[in-house]
Write a protein that binds this DNA or RNA. Structure first.
Length: 364
DNA sequence: AACCCGTGGAC
DNA sequence: TGTCCAAGGGT
C-alpha cells in the first residue's frame, strides 16, 4: 500500500460498502436521470449538476431532454438552440463543450458514448469527476468519481485535514476511493457517497444520528465532524460598476449586442454597456461615447432609470441603467441587432440582462 | 497552482 | 444582509 494510504489502516471497506449501498438502495431520491442507465441521459445530468443543485437542475433537465431526447438529436442541433436551452443555468461553456463532445461521439464513436477512461476523458467538458461518474453509473466500471460531496464525506470518515480547496487534495481522495470502491456495484457506491453528502453528511450540522455509516466515521467518534472538511476561503468578489443603455431606434426597437466568444458570459446577448472608470461620474457621456466608438451609433442618453446588481462568484456588477434614443439608421450585424419586445424571447441573455429586460422594458 | 467561469437557495 | 456554496472543467 502506498504510504499516503496508511490512513486506510483499520478501515473496514467491505462493511462500509454494504452499509452505504444498502442505505442508498432504500433511501435514494427519485430523480429524472435515475430512470435508466442511458449513458447520454447520465452524461447530460452530470454536466448540469456541476456546481449546481439538484433542485435547480430538474426543470432544465426536463426541458433539455424533451428538446434533445437522444445524443443524435443534440448532435444535430444548432449551438444557438443548445445555448438557449441552457439560458439561466449558468456556466455556459458547459453547454458548448457538451454540444461539441456529443458531436465528437457521433462522428468518432458512431454515436455510442465511450466506456473507457482514456476515450471518455478526452471529450470536452469531461474531467476526472464526470469521467468516473459516467463510467460507474452508466457502465458499472469501478472508477472514482470524486466531487465535493465525496471529499466532505471521506474527510470526516477518515478524519483527513487536508484543504479540499487545493487541487492536490482531490488526487488523494481519488487514490483512497480506488482502494475502497465496491467492485460489484461501483454505481451505487459512488452515488451513495454523493447522496449521503447531499442529504446527511451536509456541510453544516451533519445529521450524524441518521447516518448509515457513522460507526465507520472517525470524525464522529472524535466529535470533530463540524470542523471537517477544511476548506480555505475564496477571494472576495471585485465590485465592477457598469452603465447599460436601453437604447431604442427610431422605429422603437431595442439595440442588443452579442458578447465576445470567450470569457465571461461568452456569446450571450446583452444591452450595450460599459465598465465605468473609477472616479468618473459622467455616466451618460461615457455610455454615449462608447455606443459611438464601439457600434457607430449616434445615441442620445436620456434618463437614469435605476440600478441592477448581479453577483457572480468572483465579481459583482453594479449596473446603472439608462434609457436612450438612437438617431439615424442602425446597421445590423451578426453581433448587433434591433429587437422588438417579442423577439427578446428568441435570444439568449444572461440572468443580469434578462433582469434588466423584465424590470425596465416589460414592466415599463 | 491559481484563476476564471453563473446562478439561486439555505442559513 | 451577508455568507456560503452545489454531482467541476478549462486554462
Amino acid at each position: 500500500m502506498k504510504e499516503h494510504l496508511e490512513i486506510l489502516q483499520g478501515f473496514q471497506a467491505e462493511t462500509f460498502q454494504q452499509d452505504l449501498i444498502g442505505w442508498f438502495t432504500e433511501e435514494q431520491r427519485d430523480l429524472p436521470w435515475r430512470i435508466n442507465k442511458d449513458p447520454y441521459r447520465i452524461w447530460v445530468s452530470e454536466i448540469m449538476l456541476q456546481q449546481t443543485r439538484v433542485e435547480a437542475v430538474k426543470p432544465f433537465y426536463h426541458r433539455f431532454m424533451e428538446k434533445f431526447p437522444t445524443l443524435e438529436a443534440l448532435a444535430d442541433a444548432h449551438e444557438d438552440e443548445v445555448l438557449k436551452a441552457w439560458e439561466g443555468l449558468g456556466y455556459y461553456s458547459r453547454a458548448r463543450n457538451l454540444h461539441a463532445a456529443v458531436k465528437e461521439v457521433k462522428e468518432t464513436y458512431g454515436g455510442k458514448v465511450p466506456d473507457t477512461p482514456g476515450e471518455i476523458g478526452k471529450l470536452k467538458g469531461v474531467g476526472p469527476y464526470t469521467k468516473g461518474a459516467i463510467l460507474s453509473i452508466a457502465y458499472g466500471v469501478p472508477e472514482p468519481a470524486v466531487d465535493g460531496n465525496v471529499m466532505r464525506v471521506f474527510s470526516r470518515i477518515l478524519s483527513i485535514w487536508d484543504d479540499i480547496a487545493k487541487p492536490k487534495t482531490r488526487k488523494l481522495f481519488e487514490d483512497i476511493i480506488r482502494e475502497v470502491i465496491s467492485k460489484e456495484n461501483p454505481s451505487y457506491f459512488n452515488q451513495g457517497l454523493m447522496e449521503l453528502g447531499a442529504l446527511i453528511c451536509i456541510p453544516k450540522n451533519p445529521a450524524c444520528l441518521l447516518c448509515p455509516v457513522r460507526q465507520h466515521c472517525r470524525a464522529f467518534h472524535e466529535g470533530v465532524q463540524k470542523e471537517l472538511p477544511v476548506k480555505s476561503k475564496a477571494k472576495d468578489p471585485v465590485i465592477v460598476p457598469l452603465a447599460a443603455g436601453i437604447l431604442r431606434a427610431e422605429d422603437g426597437r431595442y439595440v442588443v449586442n452579442k458578447r465576445p466568444s470567450s470569457g465571461l458570459l461568452a456569446n450571450m446577448w446583452e444591452f450595450p454597456n460599459i465598465e465605468l472608470q473609477e472616479g468618473v461620474s459622467k455616466h451618460k457621456q461615457q455610455l454615449s461615447y462608447y455606443a459611438k466608438e464601439k457600434f457607430g451609433l449616434a445615441v442620445e442618453v436620456d434618463e437614469f432609470v435605476g440600478t441592477v446588481q448581479h453577483s457572480f462568484t468572483h465579481r459583482t456588477w453594479d449596473i446603472f441603467v439608462f434609457r436612450g434614443k438612437v438617431k439615424g439608421e442602425v446597421r445590423e450585424t451578426d453581433s448587433l441587432k434591433l429587437l422588438t419586445e417579442e423577439e427578446f424571447a428568441e435570444y439568449t441573455f444572461s440572468r443580469s440582462h434578462r433582469n434588466i429586460f423584465e424590470q425596465y422594458v416589460v414592466q415599463a
